[in-house]
Design a protein around this nucleic acid. Structure first.
Lengths: 196, 196
DNA sequence: AGGCGGTCGAACCGATCGGTACTATCTTGG
DNA sequence: CCAAGATAGTACCGATCGGTTCGACCGCCT
């Protein structure tokens, strides 16, 4: 997965390309599972380039996780938006998107949660917390638009379903996790609407 | 956390003591976050002793995870049993127990799931899968005793809730996760009973 | 009493780690 | 066309990794 050699001397573009190319490697093998030497070899760049752009391996990790968090959030927000205005449709779309993700070959769970479990660096844990908080905002918003009795509580329950489904899909490989989580989400939504 | 020096020459007891003492260290710092040298120093044993009993660091990790899995399963089964015969009470007891766990100072999420996220060794991933399967059996049993329309589906939904609550509690530190997951579980149980 | 085996403590091993230094090459802006 | 800067490639650094070996104890069993 070499970094394309377009326009040398465009620091931002080079940096972005490195982040993009390093992401799948670090995701599939683990943050500490691939060394800097191998990383650079796979990326087709020299260690000096990497260290000039990121200063530290942790710097690269930070950049990769930040980018990943943004991308995931945009992907999920897009799925919600494409589902139309109905909160139930939006929830269903979330879990359908998750189901497609779980079925991908390289799926290994939530990158942010995995990173926090692996890498005991405060910045990584803080970023994971922010990542979950953004997820929570999205679900709380859906809950509020659905006129749930307690949007915050329902939002948290939906967050638990999403992260739980991801963990179960990653570590207990039996198909159907996303569909069952989807059904659970819709049940909770209906119950919260009827004022329970 | 030194290994007590009781009765030398009792291989099984020594081995068990090492496993017991190593468990919290590996849980809190990560499987790869503490080296063999430091591990032995903290345990008050020599590397030779460790390697005679476990052959490999991975051997110790395996033993620790196996013991941990057994202990967790027994703990949760006991919580269920102590709750009496009513499935709803049993479910409530599960999430109450989880809530107490989340509030403990050293809580860092599900050790098995963390291990699988950190350590890319097949044996570890396989053990995590078995661990989740045992959890699933417990919840499917509760669902069946509750006369749920589809006990397998409800069991999986409950597993998702449990693992999701654990992940969220570990990485998004806001109190109340266990209580909200408990409410969600009871809602799902009620819905599955009424035949939805 | 004596030997055997579990144990400690420390030295030691090769491999790999993250990170640095240096040279040669290449692209780009002036 | 040339100087400046980005890059690849490679050698290298000290530290740490998992794992081995050895000598000296010391509790247990016969």
């Amino acid at each position: 997965m070499p970094v394309p050699k377009g326009s040398t001397i465009d620091p931002a573009r080079t940096r972005a390309a490195i982040v993009e190319a390093a992401t799948p490697l670090l995701y599939e093998r683990g943050l500490d599972g691939v060394g800097v030497a191998e990383l650079c070899a796979r990326l087709g760049i020299s260690k000096e380039t990497l260290y000039r752009h990121f200063g530290t391996k942790d710097g690269l990790v930070e950049a990769v996780l930040e980018r990943r968090s943004e991308r995931v959030h945009a992907w999920m927000a897009a799925a919600v938006e494409a589902a139309g205005p109905d909160p139930a449709d939006q929830l269903a779309a979330v879990f359908d998107a998750l189901g497609r993700w779980y079925a991908e070959p390289g799926f290994r769970g939530c990158a942010m949660v995995n990173a926090a479990a692996q890498h005991h660096v405060d910045a990584v844990r803080a970023r994971t917390e922010r990542h979950l908080a953004r997820y929570l905002d999205l679900f709380t918003g859906i809950a509020a638009r659905a006129r749930a009795a307690d949007p915050d509580a329902l939002g948290r329950q939906l967050l638990v379903l999403v992260e739980g489904a991801t963990v179960v899909a990653a570590h207990h490989r039996v198909a159907g996790t996303a569909e069952q989580a989807r059904a659970a989400a819709l049940t909770l939504l209906a119950a919260a609407r009827s004022g329970t």
